[in-house]
Amino acid sequence: MTTDTRVPMVRAEDVRKSFGHLEVLRGINLEVHRGEVMTLLGPSGSGKTTFIRLINHLETISAGRLTVDGQLVGYREHQGRLHELRESEVAGMRAEIGMVFQRFNLFPHMTALQNIMAAPIGVRREPKSVVRERALRLLERVGMSDKSGAYPGALSGGQQQRVAIARALAMEPKLMLFDEPTSALDPELVGEVLDVMKDLARSGMTMIVVTHEMGFAKEVADSVVFMDNGVVVEAGPPDAVLVDPQHQRTRDFLSKVL
């Protein structure tokens, strides 16, 4: 593991991804530094979700180089060749990257607390009492202390998503990926999830967030990336990209979303 702070947390060089003949990512170049919050914007089908799914190897990369914390994702480089990683190695990498999904994907047969405790106990083999304490702290942090024994089915969407964030944080990740975390929520529940995410961003977590929440982007993002049709159209600080976009496509998109 690298701890060199100059190495970017995520670095994408000419990253490409095809599904059959359809090329959804056509050469992405990005860098996310430690402690930085990046938001990815773009119309549906622009490839933003595919891109963050590549970062924890839920999709395999078709071409290009993608590194997390200096380590190549899904491959090991040896004597000029790329060797596919074994399942256990991939799992080990994923354990250090948290992911929050659009549809929450909480385990419905486990309580909120069990959802959070499952991976630290099962994957990191930590003692139950330690995990339990951390899980309860995390539930408090996301404002769900009183629901530790509730099953996901008994929780609102916003509550489920907050538990899902706590579940990801329980693995003490070095990077958090958010795939449209508020898109499946009723409008009045969006705020409570964004509040948790803003709090997380201010605590120094490195985050990549696919979202249409411009307020969130303006308030806490260090950089905003606008993607369209598998390429990065425009990237920069939120004041630049959101307030004074240079490209017509970005302007068109923003005028529809805002």
Partner: peptide
């Protein structure tokens, strides 16, 4: 069982056997 369940478990670093036993089969 929804594919998202497996993905969520994978994203947490779980391996195939554990995902099957702990996440998929119970559901």
């Amino acid at each position: 069982v929804d594919k998202g369940q497996t993905e969520a478990a994978q994203a947490l670093g779980m391996k195939r056997g554990r995902i099957l036993r702990q996440i998929v089969l119970p559901q």
